[in-house]
Design a binder for these strands. Structure first.
Length: 289
DNA sequence: CATCTTGTTACGTT
DNA sequence: AAACGTAACAAGAT
């Protein structure tokens, strides 16, 4: 489920526990969620420590505790965070359960593609420091985008957008939303995007990222009706602009939905008929916030 | 019963 | 040496 904005939503679900001590930690330690974790150390240090703050970067989350404890969480495909009452009893897939006096913080993940990491040290764990620049940061530049596209020039742009090293937080629905708004065929090799296209792609990434954070993060609401998001899961989904049935195909290893009329390869763009005069054109301008 | 899934990663190939 | 394509991971929904 979770991409950029959903991860941010789930991070906030533990906010009620900020400033409060952990009285007990219960976990399903043999699950793959905990691969590589020093469990005895996690339990020993976390118990009695206080949750101080948390942050999300792309799909990664980091929770800072007193006693030099750091908890890294990744939600995988089906992970989620929530808060339960103090007397909550963990269920089958509640792999990490952090008890406080007034509430219980729960990490659930049925498929266990997610991950828990634990770090005991004065400063942030190394893996956190070496994460790529956030999409809304000053370091995510058109130049950096071009360099990344060049490095992966033989990959389809759809597959490239899913690489977290270049686009932290983008997942399957965001990638499709971006390509639809930028009018790019998902199968276009990344290396064929040139001229004004990288700048357009950059603006669209910013627009979709900010839009997702604005619409989804506060309450897990869906984006506006005008977004491809609302069509792409439907069997008979259509382009929000002119109702053309969407195409569905595996691209870059993932199910991809796109509008065959709007989204064409760069080289074919000039040959295609233009949209009717009164049709709105969904180009992100980057001026929105 | 078969097929699908909003994510990564190990592994073999190019 | 990098980049690339694919199977695998696990469980629930349709």
């Amino acid at each position: 489920m979770p991409e950029l904005a959903e991860v941010e939503y789930f991070r906030r679900q533990w906010d009620g526990g900020l400033g409060h001590c952990i009285t007990r930690v219960s976990l399903h330690g043999q699950r793959r969620i905990f691969r590589g974790v020093d469990l005895p150390l996690l339990v020993k240090v976390l118990t009695g420590s206080k949750l101080l703050r948390s942050e999300a970067r792309g799909k990664q989350m980091l929770f800072r505790y007193s006693k030099s404890a750091w908890l890294g969480l990744h939600l995988g495909m089906t992970g989620s965070l929530r808060t339960e009452h103090a007397s909550f009893t963990p269920g089958k897939h509640d792999h990490l359960v952090i008890h406080q006096a007034l509430r219980t913080l729960v990490f659930t993940d049925p498929r266990q593609f997610g991950r828990v990491q634990f770090h005991h040290g004065k400063s942030e764990p190394e893996w956190w420091c070496s994460l790529p620049p956030a999409l809304d940061s000053a370091d995510f530049t058109i130049t950096a985008l071009c360099a990344f596209l060049l490095r992966h020039r033989r990959l389809s742009i759809k597959a490239a957008l899913l690489l977290q090293q270049g686009f932290p937080g983008i997942g399957n629905w965001m990638a499709d939303e971006i390509l639809w708004r930028a009018k790019l065929d998902p199968k276009t090799p990344a290396g064929e995007l040139n001229g004004q296209i990288p700048a357009l792609l950059w603006r669209t990434i910013r627009f979709v990222s900010r839009g997702a954070m604005k619409h989804v993060s506060p309450s897990f609401s869906d984006p506006p009706k005008s977004w491809l998001f609302n069509q792409r899961w439907k069997r008979d989904g259509v382009c929000p602009f002119h109702g053309t049935p969407l195409k569905r195909e595996i691209v870059g290893g993932r199910t991809t939905a796109w509008c065959p009329r709007c989204q064409v390869k760069h080289g074919q763009r000039s040959v295609r008929a233009r949209p009717a005069k009164n049709q709105p054109v969904p180009i992100a301008t980057g001026k929105q916030r």
